[in-house]
Write a protein that binds this DNA or RNA. Structure first.
Length: 654
RNA sequence: GGCGGCGUAGCUCAGCUGGUCAGAGCAUGCGGUUCAUACCCGCAGUGUCACUGGUUCGAAUCCAGUCGCCGCUACCA
């Protein structure tokens, strides 16, 4: 493609086309023992946005992700599934790649630690360091649990026994030969490096932690295992396999062909950014740099430890059943809504809260109300008053142009520090400014007064701002920017165009025929679920809306037997009930607002109707796990629903 | 236990080296508008800036202590 015009203004950090600077960014390689969840998606989407931004800015980007496929856990999971480890991981990796394609992750390379290209480099690296003397053979002493086939550290034991809750059997002290890596030798060098390079570890709080850890003294690291086979054999000593982190971390250079053809390695190493979750900072800022030091290789320029998406109910875990599957979210809300939420909600290095309500809130308030509606209303005006053509601005009002320029500047600052959430906040401040500007200038009022020139300027300024907004969203969203440009009547896509051209004011040509379409982001109706678990509230608006059977089925109604009841102190209305809901559900505690109508002792033994899948609530400090149903008529009349005869507690109601 | 951090409007949080620092967004209420996806715009809040002392002319901002919460404290990825 012929680049004909010279860049008029070279933004900071933007290389000219001739001397294209490189940018190498990595995600962690994920462990394919299970499907990935929203947390993995978060890391990868963030890396993707950074990679897209850097490409936008003209960098020669290399974006690497992959999978870390060895280790005991995989070996076990495969066995349980009756598969070979390789078969097992192949299937999961296929699913991971599908997820990345669903989320439109623009990785340049996907490395798997079971690939030959990786195995060879790991063995090469191991051998080099061994020869150098920084890996040495010694004895590993540990407590071994024979039934569990697992080594434990002294401090992991519980009462000197196996800490596995299903085991708790005595362990035996075992010595075995192992390879050790001399972390201790490089301790001071690493400390100095971290101290002299304040940007090496981000954010600063993590940097301090890591520095602290180093200063407390590094022990040599055991880098081989003999207790399982699913790993890379130690060269020349195949009863050992290479320790997981030594294997995994090496992916960052094996993917570049370190020690082989070498060209890509020379081009892209050292990495500009390893983006990782805060939980694996230590491996990336201590073990990995020391491996590189032992190889006499330069260290990555930055390791950024991002925070987690925290769920309301605590950390995501399979046992809690609260694992959020990104595929489900994308199917439900669309890829751009999910990407937007992930990148907007979690600021800098801190944690962010995930809930579906928060996700819907973001979609509605930012994407639908502010951005989508802005485009919709301004194109509506263009259709009504300008016959669907971009109006011609008059000189004079530069307020929006000035504001947009300011936004672009702040956006660049945020992005250059990888502050994705801040960058998005800035972009949306321009959207908000546009909405306000439209209201202030009210072009729909100017037109009837014959102030067409002024109104044209206003509309142009808004449309042009929206054009730039779409451009700034290119790294974050994968469909919306082009959708906006299309509606603005621009035939090109903002993606792949040069940054300077996209963000320069005045790109939108007057007279362009616009193509207004449906809402960019439809509002999501948030069903207001009354979490009040008492029986108050009565009938509500009867007959206001018809529902289908599926909607009704969402309720889990059960017969429950009242086993105990007592008044709630400090409340005239509330009773605390213990319910027997059968074998399936068991005991439930419910707080019900029926004290004015029932005495506790009259309730015990009654069969009532429980909404079993209502979100738990806390009333007067007492947890209520559902609600029981009652009919009421005015203030004074309330009767509990019950069943017409004997039926086992827990029986379903339909 | 050791080191570090946090505790500011209902919610999520900004507030760097002390003097418009008492703020933003969301939620709430009221008003405006009706070009628009019940949208947008404006106004209004309430806050003992965890608690107790201290330094200072003056502290959310510095110091000490108390209470509460969180992170790190290595061989599980």
């Amino acid at each position: 493609m012929g680049v004909t015009h010279l860049s008029t203004k070279t933004s900071r950090g933007t290389p000219s086309p001739k001397t294209k600077k490189t940018f190498y960014i990595t995600t962690p390689i994920y462990y394919p023992s299970d499907k990935l969840h929203i947390g993995h998606a978060y890391t990868t989407v963030a890396a993707d946005a950074i990679a897209r931004y850097k490409r936008f800015k003209g960098f020669d980007v290399r974006f690497l992700t992959g999978t870390d496929e060895h280790g005991q856990k995989i070996e076990r999971r495969a066995k349980e599934a009756g598969k070979t480890p390789q078969q097992f991981v192949d299937e999961i990796v296929a699913g991971i790649k599908d997820l990345w394609s669903l989320l439109r992750i623009s990785y340049d390379d996907f490395i798997r630690t079971t690939e030959r290209r990786h195995i060879e480099v790991v063995q090469d690296v191991f051998e080099k360091i061994l020869k150098k003397g920084d890996i040495y053979k010694s004895e590993y002493e540990g407590w071994y649990c024979v039934p569990c086939e697992t080594f434990w550290l002294e401090r992991q034991l519980e009462d000197g026994k196996c800490p596995n809750p299903d085991c708790r059997r005595p362990v035996e002290l075992v010595r075995e030969e192992s390879y050790f890596f001399k972390l201790s030798k490089y301790q001071d060098k690493l400390i100095r490096y971290i101290e002299e390079n304040p940007d090496f570890i981000k954010p600063a709080s993590r940097r301090n932690e890591m520095l602290n850890f180093c200063k407390s003294g590094l022990e040599d690291l055991c880098v081989s295992r003999t207790t399982f086979n699913w790993g890379i054999p130690v060269p020349g000593d195949p009863k050992h396999v290479v320790y997981v982190w030594f294997d995994a971390l090496t992916n960052y250079i094996s993917a570049l062909g370190y020690g082989r053809d070498g060209e890509e390695f020379r081009k892209y190493w050292p990495a500009d950014l390893h983006l990782v979750g805060k939980e694996i900072m230590r491996f990336h800022t201590i073990i990995w740099p020391i491996i590189l030091m032992a190889l006499d290789l330069p260290l990555p320029k930055q390791v950024f430890g991002h925070g987690w998406l925290v769920l309301e109910g605590g950390k995501m875990s399979k046992s809690k059943g609260n694992v959020i599957d990104p595929v489900v979210l994308v199917d439900k809300y669309g890829v751009d809504a999910v990407r937007y939420f992930l990148l907007r909600e979690v600021p800098f290095g801190s944690d962010g809260y995930y809930s579906e309500e928060a996700l819907k809130g973001r979609i509605n308030s930012d994407l639908a109300n502010d951005l989508g509606n802005l485009l919709h209303r301004s194109l509506g005006l263009v259709e009504r008053y300008w016959d669907g053509r971009v109006p011609t601005p008059q000189a004079g009002d530069t307020s929006m142009a000035d504001y947009a320029r300011e936004v672009v500047k702040k956006y660049e600052e945020a992005m250059d520090g990888f502050l994705l959430s801040d960058a998005l906040t800035t972009v949306f401040s321009l959207v908000t400014r546009c909405n306000k500007y439209l209201d202030e200038e009210a072009p729909w009022a100017k037109m009837p007064r014959g102030e067409e020139a002024a109104a044209s300027t206003v509309l142009y300024n808004v449309l042009e701002s929206v054009r730039i907004v779409a451009g700034l969203l290119v790294p974050f969203l994968v469909e919306t920017p082009e959708a906006i440009w299309t509606q603005l009547g621009i035939d090109e896509s903002p993606r792949g165009k040069r940054w300077e051209e996209v963000v320069a004011w005045g790109g939108l040509k007057p007279s362009t025929r616009t193509r207004k379409a449906g809402p960019l982001f439809p509002r999501i109706e948030i069903r207001t679920q009354d979490a009040h678990p008492s029986t108050e509230g009565g009938a509500g608006e009867a007959g206001s809306e018809l529902i289908d059977i599926e909607r009704f089925k969402e309720l889990d109604l059960r017969v429950a037997k009242v086993t105990a009841a007592e008044a709630v102190s400090g409340s005239k209305k509330l009773l605390k009930l213990q319910l027997d809901v059968g074998d399936g559900i068991g005991q439930r505690q419910v707080v019900a607002g029926i004290a004015k109508h029932y005495k506790p002792e009259d309730l015990v033994g009654k069969y009532v109707v429980l909404v079993a899948n209502l979100k738990p609530a806390v009333l007067k400090g007492i947890r209520s796990e559902g609600m029981i149903l009652a009919a009421s008529h005015g203030e004074d009349c309330l009767r509990l629903l019950t069943v017409d005869g004997e039926i086992p507690p827990g029986s379903g109601i339909s």
